[in-house]
Amino acid sequence: MKQRDLGSTGLQVSVLGFGSGAGGGLMTKGEPADQVRAVARAMEAGITYFDTAAAYGQGHSEENLGRVLGELKAWDKIVLGTKVRFNEVDRKEPVAWVRKSVEGSLKRLKHDRIDLLQLHNPVCNGAKGSSPTEDDVPVAEVLAGVAEGMQQVQKEGLVGHLGYTGLGDTEALHAIARDTRFKSVQVYFNALNPSAGYAGATGASQDYDGLIDTCAASGVGVLAFRVLANGALVARADRHPIAGIPNAPLDGGPTYEGHVEGARALMPIVDELGLESGLELGFRFALSKEGVSSVLVGFSDLGQLEDAIRWAERGPLPASTMDRIVALAR
């Protein structure tokens, strides 16, 4: 498994990142023995980046991942990222809330340090943003009290590096990427809306206006997420029994069903290249974009993990294929 620099953090992360959210469900609702087998297999394959959050499964993701990493004695072999999320009340005392959130995460993880702490809220330009959620945080607050709270736990050694989730108003996301305190961003990026890598190629969704390139110019590491469009790139509507139910589109675009329909337009490319599915196309599309450090995928079972490992080993797509996919989104 190839490793890439996570921006200017000094950390190296695997090109395939292990997602532990409710979308896949393995680390929130899976059987404990299956969780151990999956994490052990991931590490055997060279996966070094593991992503979780306090909000995933109401804390169960952190608890389960921490338990497994402890059982496998793996803490010194991996890079772990988790997140802090604010509600309206928490925003009144951001420094205190960051500390409380981090202490809760460490307790659930049963560990003494987090490699990467990321803001989990969408950010907006003014008092309210255009995202479909109700917990937008104005960029002015992010660069003031939120950043101060995150820096404080960083200075105390509880956290290694700071990052944020790239959702919300596009201008605000670019502004944070240019702030030297934030060293990574989770970027919404997939073959149906590749605008974070190719400005203007929105697929009728939000234009992230080349956020990945802004990050690269600022030395900010990029963790690409929703690269499989919540599984819609398989181009059919059925889902694994423990996979989460798709929520409202994060980029203000089509519904999950609309994404499934959009994925069908990619099937001729899948067939021409002899790929296994639209999921392989989507994963390798994200992997191919210069500036992406790791491609995050969530899993429901060990078979899905094996698929992603196989696709990572096959590497980037041809440049001509990338151009065709981007053209379909314009």
Rank of each mutant, 00 (worst) to 15 (best):
residue 247 N to R: 12
residue 226 R to I: 01
residue 262 G to Y: 13
residue 257 E to N: 05
residue 289 K to G: 04
residue 276 E to K: 06
residue 251 D to H: 11
residue 248 A to D: 13
residue 243 A to S: 15
residue 293 S to H: 11
residue 282 G to Y: 02
residue 282 G to T: 11
residue 224 A to G: 09
residue 272 E to R: 15
residue 213 D to K: 08
residue 236 R to N: 11
residue 279 L to A: 14
residue 217 A to I: 04
residue 291 G to M: 07
residue 242 I to G: 14
residue 228 L to A: 08
residue 269 I to C: 02
residue 266 L to Y: 00
residue 272 E to C: 09
residue 289 K to N: 11
residue 209 D to R: 14
residue 229 A to H: 04
residue 272 E to S: 14
residue 285 F to H: 11
residue 268 P to H: 07
residue 218 S to C: 12
residue 236 R to C: 01
residue 302 L to W: 04
residue 217 A to G: 04
residue 278 G to S: 11
residue 224 A to I: 08
residue 299 F to N: 12
residue 294 S to T: 15
residue 227 V to E: 02
residue 226 R to Y: 15
residue 295 V to K: 02
residue 232 A to E: 08
residue 278 G to F: 13
residue 243 A to K: 12
residue 303 G to E: 12
residue 219 G to L: 07
residue 245 I to C: 00
residue 282 G to D: 07
residue 238 D to F: 14
residue 291 G to Y: 01
residue 254 P to E: 13
residue 301 D to S: 09
residue 301 D to Q: 06
residue 252 G to C: 13
residue 290 E to Y: 00
residue 298 G to Q: 03
residue 281 L to Q: 06
residue 277 S to G: 10
residue 301 D to H: 03
residue 260 V to D: 10
residue 227 V to R: 08
residue 297 V to W: 02
residue 218 S to D: 07
residue 289 K to Q: 15
residue 278 G to V: 13
residue 251 D to V: 08
residue 295 V to Y: 02
residue 277 S to C: 11
residue 269 I to V: 15
residue 220 V to Q: 04
residue 297 V to C: 05
residue 295 V to W: 03
residue 260 V to I: 14
residue 224 A to C: 01
residue 222 V to R: 07
residue 263 A to E: 07
residue 254 P to F: 10
residue 270 V to W: 00
residue 249 P to M: 07
residue 234 V to F: 05
residue 259 H to W: 11
residue 281 L to W: 07
residue 212 I to P: 04
residue 279 L to C: 12
residue 268 P to C: 10
residue 303 G to F: 11
residue 238 D to C: 02
residue 291 G to P: 03
residue 291 G to T: 01
residue 266 L to V: 09
residue 243 A to Q: 14
residue 283 F to M: 07
residue 262 G to M: 11
residue 221 G to W: 06
residue 297 V to T: 03
residue 297 V to L: 00
residue 267 M to A: 03
residue 237 A to N: 10
residue 304 Q to D: 01
residue 230 N to F: 02
residue 250 L to P: 10
residue 271 D to P: 05
residue 219 G to D: 03
residue 212 I to E: 04
residue 272 E to W: 01
residue 230 N to Y: 03
residue 256 Y to N: 04
residue 293 S to W: 09
residue 257 E to V: 00
residue 250 L to M: 15
residue 223 L to S: 14
residue 254 P to K: 15
residue 266 L to T: 12
residue 287 L to I: 05
residue 241 P to I: 03
residue 302 L to H: 07
residue 293 S to P: 01
residue 234 V to D: 14
